[in-house]
Amino acid sequence: MWILPLLGLLAGAVIGSTLTYEVPPTYIKYMSIAVLASLDSVLGGVRALLKNDFDSTVLLSGFFTNALLAALLAYLGDRLGVDLYLAAVFVFGVRLFQNLANIRHSLLSQLRNNKQVK
């Protein structure tokens, strides 16, 4: 059941590496923030799935808005001379680890439940 999403990830990686487009060096910073934000959203989605309160609209909207907003905020911070970039990194980093921890907990509890059922 996890094969399709994993295939999607692989296909995305392949597409991304075959694309001739290259991100301009000035936007690499914002791009990295966007990637971090979307990574966080994806992990959040996975966590929701495991907790059985998954909502695809929430995931999709979160994926795009988080990425765009994070990049925009970082850009704005650069314009204003404030390192909002760091704030975004911090927030998304913390959430990422929390999501990961939640995923781990869910997986572990699922595993234990399965054992008890057996």
Binding site: P5, L6, G8, L9, L10, A11, G12, A13, V14, I15, G16, S17, L19, M31, A34, V35, S38, L39, S41, V42, G45, L59, L60, F63, A67
Partner: peptide, 10 residues
């Protein structure tokens, strides 16, 4: 989402 993630990451 995973597809987009893969593209972005690479």
């Amino acid at each position: 989402v995973f597809l987009l993630m893969g593209i972005l990451l690479s």
